[in-house]
Simulated assay, not measured.
Amino acid sequence: LVEVIRSRRERWAAARREAGLARDREAARERVAIARDLHDVIGHSLSLINVQAGVALHLLDEQPDHARPALQTIKSVSHDALEEVRVVLDTLRDPGSATRSPAPTLLDVPALVEQTEQGPVAWTLAVTGSRGAVTSAVDTAAYRVVMEAMTNVRRHSSATRARIEIAYDEGGVGVRVTDNGRPEARRPDDPGAAIGLGLVGMRERVAALGGRLDAGPRPTGFTVEARFPRSTDQTTSEAP
């Protein structure tokens, strides 16, 4: 009887330890996911604000009317970034207390391109295939890859032109961002560089959903390309 009681206590203690380790692992995953979201949102917003502020300052004296759209973009982008950061911080302070706004999807990419109209990089967007049903996890991750790739173009290259391609097919969803910047200005393998951290986050997002990400220099620029499976165990979102 004593041996049975001892054995049961050991099993209960082991189960408690394993449950504690599982909670720690889940908390670590949540912290990484939050850090990745903050990196993407803040990096994108601040780089865009910096570009638009430069445009506004350039136009303010000679063409003040043309500076207004840049200032409006700064106001809109900073408001959205502050709201998203507030939600994340509220969630950290009191999990479950904050109500998240709908997660961004690939349908929001045109708005990203519109925000950059007055910047130094001329962006084009091409969408091919039938969207159909896309899991919400894939939709948001693909959007974040595009957003981070756009941020890296603005911050780490001398590009004057860039192109975003979104491709839907039966097997999955693909996104591709290319630019004509100087390849030597990009150091994706340098773990201390901001672009390196951005690529790490993109790879983590894509790998978590069973996809693949390729990024590197081309003879005439830089390419970031991600491929996601169309179907996962997550909920799906469809084009309106």
Score class of each variant (00 low, 15 high):
Pro95Trp: 11
Val32Arg: 11
Thr140Ile: 02
Glu10Trp: 14
Thr223Phe: 03
Val113Asp: 07
Leu89Ile: 09
Leu59Asn: 03
Val200Ile: 12
Arg29Lys: 10
Val51Ile: 10
Val51Gly: 01
Glu148Gln: 14
Tyr168Trp: 01
Lys75Gln: 15
Asp37Asn: 12
Val138Thr: 06
Ala185His: 09
Glu170Asp: 15
Arg203Tyr: 07
Arg187Leu: 13
Tyr143Met: 05
Phe228Arg: 05
Ile49Glu: 03
Thr223Pro: 01
Glu84His: 05
Ala126Gly: 10
His156Gln: 03
Ala19Met: 13
Tyr168Arg: 01
Arg25Ile: 08
Leu209Gln: 05
Ala98Met: 06
Val177Ala: 04
Leu197Gln: 12
Glu148His: 06
Leu57Arg: 13
Phe222Met: 03
Thr91Pro: 01
Ser136Ala: 15
Leu82Ser: 14
Leu197His: 10
Val177Leu: 05
Thr160Tyr: 04
Leu92Trp: 04
Pro240Arg: 06
Ala33Ser: 14
Thr236Asp: 11
Val127Gln: 06
Gly211Cys: 05
Asp233Phe: 02
Glu83Thr: 11
Gly96Trp: 00
Pro110Leu: 12
Thr223Gln: 05
Asn152Thr: 00
Val55Leu: 04
Val175Pro: 02
Ala208Leu: 06
Glu18Asn: 07
Gly198Asn: 09
Gly196Met: 01
Ala185Ile: 08
Ala142Phe: 02
Leu71Ala: 02
Ala53Ser: 14
Ala56Asn: 02
Arg203Pro: 10
Ala28Glu: 15
Val41Tyr: 00
Leu1His: 11
Ala142Thr: 07
Arg68His: 09
Ala98His: 01
Gly20Gln: 15
Leu59Lys: 06
Ala19Val: 10
Ile42Gln: 08
Pro95Leu: 09
Glu83Ala: 11
Val87Ala: 15
Thr91Cys: 07
